[in-house]
Amino acid sequence: MIFNLYIFDRLGTCVLYAEWNRKKPANLPKDEEFQNMYGMLFSLRSFVKRLSPLDCKDGFLNYQTSKYKLHYYETPSGLKLVMNTSTDVGDIRETLRQLYGQIYVEYVVKNPLCPLDKPITSDFFKDKLETFIKALPFY
């Protein structure tokens, strides 16, 4: 089951947030939640890089708690995709990569009227995203 999805650009702006099955309402206003999430991701990345016994290639991949699993995918251009799912979902790195390549790049990057550093307002993108997510086997 997919709970929610965040996409952050390389400067830390949350350009997309979407939720599907989130039960617990956020206790914080959205801006703070995004800042907290980005800050945590940044710390996790640097934590993993320092702690790792060998040189990291991909770095931090995902973490799991008793109730959810957070999957992380970062492109070399600094775009960060974060998806929270239930704990029974396996490795979805390939799915996140497809989301990046087939949805974000196609409908946001290739649209010159879509600014890359502001929240995404394109309805076209949002529709395509919904279709993609709902078609996933673990939705």
Binding site: P76, S77, L79, R97, Y100, Q102, V105, K110, P112, L116
Partner: peptide, 16 residues
């Protein structure tokens, strides 16, 4: 270039 790189990364699947 700043947009083309995303297309490149998405289609070529190269890492760093």
């Amino acid at each position: 270039g700043i947009r083309l790189i995303e297309d490149f990364l998405a289609r070529s699947n190269t890492g760093r």
